[in-house]
């Protein structure tokens, strides 16, 4: 059975080196400052105590007040899983660092978030629309998106 690492446990692991980036923790997840997400992920992947070598999924949720980017990660060595969250404020040009340098598999999913949710990832090797065509107006998964065609 895959054990989930609680937000508290993860907080205790990270508080030494990355205390400044840890904003909050919940039952199953930990909230990280956007500035530190790339460095925290790099540590989680490479530290021998955790070894989160596998990125399951990245997604973003539009809570209107802010965007929440959710990372599901897994450690094959210990059969554990964890959830990281990043909150990005602002609706015009929300930006956060890319984790493609940590897990190259993040590439397409970050492009998808850029396309459908309108979040930019700094340091992404090929950030452009993936599902929709260039020039599509708006980002459909945002809560305030209005369809251009009326039915």
């Amino acid at each position: 059975m895959t054990r989930s690492i609680t937000g508290k446990e993860l907080h205790d692991y990270l508080v030494q080196g990355f205390g400044a980036y840890l904003l909050d923790y919940e039952e199953q997840s930990i909230v990280i400052d956007p500035q530190g997400i790339q460095r925290v992920c790099e540590y989680l992947r490479s530290s021998s105590e955790l070894e989160f070598s596998f990125l399951n999924s990245i997604t973003a949720v539009d809570y209107v007040e802010y965007f929440e980017v959710v990372y599901h990660i897994t450690s094959f060595s210990y059969n554990t899983k964890a959830v990281l969250k990043v909150r990005v404020y602002g609706r015009d040009e929300p930006t956060l660092p890319s984790v493609c340098s940590v897990w190259p598999g993040a590439n397409f999913q970050e492009r998808e978030i850029f396309d459908l949710m309108g979040l930019s990832f700094k340091g992404h090797p090929n950030l452009k629309r993936i599902m929709l065509w260039e020039g599509f107006p708006g980002h459909p998964l945002r809560r305030d998106f209005e369809d251009v065609v009326k039915y």
Binding site: N56, T59, D62, G105, N107, F108, Q109, L141
Partner: peptide, 15 residues
């Protein structure tokens, strides 16, 4: 649901 994300293996395997 407020949000429904689908983690599709085909897309990610294509990378």
């Amino acid at each position: 649901p407020y949000r429904c994300k689908i983690r599709s293996p085909s897309l990610i395997n294509l990378h």
